[in-house]
Design a protein around this nucleic acid. Structure first.
Lengths: 333, 333
DNA sequence: ATGAAAGCGCTAACAA
DNA sequence: TTGTTAGCGCTTTCAT
């Protein structure tokens, strides 16, 4: 492996000149610069990441904390990961992946100077990691919003706004009984932030609009959907509108409705809040699309800003417009 | 941040003693060891990863190259990632995630001494990355087997053996016409290793068993499954056995058969080759389960061995037993 | 516009 | 069993 000394020798300059050519922190004459670049190319030189980190206190690596939970849609996780890694590379950052041993892992990579900052996914309302993170000296951005961010920056989808948009849309069509098919029970049990916020947003919006509402967690798969639908109908007889915030349950739901001879939107109106665009769903559905890639990109950019010295914490909520694909209509009768 | 010097001072020993306490490469008296440990705990000391990498030529980080392709089942990718990160942490390794800019990325992390070794997923028959990887000085393990591994170690599922097992099972039941519902066309177009090997294994086994066989790529989703089934029946009228190597297509396939009034295994026998155990599928199916977690674990362990100095390249193929869940029977008539 | 040289924090000879 | 110290390869003051 060629070192900066080899490059300097080959180019007939000092090592500091090579360093400055690479960092651009000093003005270098064009002649020198090109000689250095030629030497770098000829020797196939790459700076040693560890040496650079030691001398500069920067690793150019960010940590992505992605708990691979069973109750979170893997497609969504993958979309986040893809968006984060792509954006990070655009800022010349690499990504270290942490999936388990939450607290210890955070402390280890942070105190060990393995990463310049942390991106933490899937934040719960009272996420214990928030406490740990505030004790670390690394910039952190949360994907998700805890009850108390404690000075950490957050990015997320505006679930409350989304719920309001959906309820407004359905109530404007004349619906007075609206059910919400939510995430799996486990997600709610562990107080996943998104699950709670969209639930509260939905119930609040329904109250404000003066419509009857039921919020029902739902396992994906035919059996789970069947149970959830039964529960919904028990609580809200004659319900004519379904808000579905559970992409994995959609195929079974549509199959079940078809089986019952119910038409959409003739008998039942459906709006989804999902990460896939409405036209990539089992059938086109009126929907709000969670802009997962944008959230990932924004998170990286906020983290980059904080690594760069930006001090002020910020919570950013990204919204979505309702896209009408004809799966909602005025209620029967 | 406390450094090794602070710890040494607090414990009243030299820095090398602290270093040796941590690495265990020297015998330390119990008394000294405990004083050092106490100092470490009191100061909250963590070795600086960069400094350690610079001095020892080891980063304790491995690179995981995981192209997030559309035609690969995200669940499988997640299972791999989970297994790899978990196993890696068990060996005190962290995982750097690479998802794009294949060749440049490989060179960058390798020449830049960002990682001690590389794990590369989703290898194609003539994967261009193999050439790049052989030119790197880092130990590498491929998850998947290229036509010519060029001295790199490989781990994978024994797709050929699996195909043979399945064909033998069906032919023993009396089936003489067997169709294979394969990965999406895109996977075959890009010569994904697993897709080609299971195809060839299937066709060879069928020839050896003297049964008629058709291999049919298949898009997931109702429309894709419909087309694939039509093609199969056109090529093999009266086909009574289906080997399905496409987990995403299973729900639609089962729905379609039900719609046609065909019973399993009465009218059609089905065997799947899938990453989910047969009893986690839409309905219990006779199956061969691809041991994804074991493959990931083995890959990490082989990489650890090579990082540790093991020289000999090795290709390991993990097999699976056929689990009978009653979805196969002798053909009608 | 460029160079010289002092660290950054750790590991591993070499010594005792 | 423990200590001393020379690097590892880079960045960045301080000089010129």
């Amino acid at each position: 492996m060629a070192t900066i000394v080899d490059v300097a020798a080959a180019a007939g300059v000092s090592t500091s000149t090579v360093s400055y050519v690479l960092s651009g922190k000093r003005t270098i004459s064009p002649a020198t610069r090109s000689r250095v670049h030629r030497a770098i190319a000829e020797l196939g030189y790459r700076p040693h990441a560890g040496a650079r980190a030691l001398a500069s206190n920067r690793t150019d690596v960010i940590g992505l904390v992605a708990p691979l939970r069973e109750d979170v849609d893997v497609n969504v996780i993958m979309q986040f990961v893809r968006s984060v890694t792509t954006t990070a590379r655009g800022h010349d950052l690499d990504v270290l992946l942490l999936t388990k041993e939450e607290d210890a892992g955070l402390r280890r990579v942070s105190a060990g100077s393995l990463v310049d900052g942390l991106l933490v996914m899937d934040i719960e309302a009272d996420d214990p990691r928030v406490e740990v993170l505030t004790g670390l000296d690394r910039p952190t951005v949360l994907i998700g919003v805890p009850r108390d961010p404690r000075g950490l920056s957050c990015v997320d989808f505006d679930f409350v706004g989304a719920a309001r948009t959906v309820v407004t849309h359905l109530s404007a069509l004349g619906h007075r009984r609206i059910a919400f098919l939510a995430s799996p029970p486990r997600a709610l049990d562990r107080h996943a932030g998104y699950a709670e916020r969209v639930r509260d947003g939905f119930l609040d919006a329904a109250r404000a609009a003066g419509v009857e509402a039921v919020h029902q967690p739902c396992e994906p798969g035919p059996a789970g959907v069947r149970r959830a639908l039964d529960a919904v109908r028990a609580g809200l007889p004659g319900v004519g509108a379904l808000v579905v915030h559970n992409e994995a349950a959609l195929p079974a739901l549509l199959a079940l409705l078809a089986e019952e001879g119910l038409s959409v939107p003739g008998d039942v109106s459906i709006v989804t809040i999902a990460a896939s665009a409405g036209d990539e769903l089992p059938r086109p559905l009126t929907s709000l699309t969670v802009p997962v890639p944008e959230i990932g990109r924004t998170a990286v950019e906020m983290l980059v800003a904080r690594i760069g010295g930006e001090r002020t914490a910020e919570t950013r909520l990204l919204g979505a417009r309702l896209e009408d694909r004809g799966s909602t209509a005025a209620p029967r009768g």
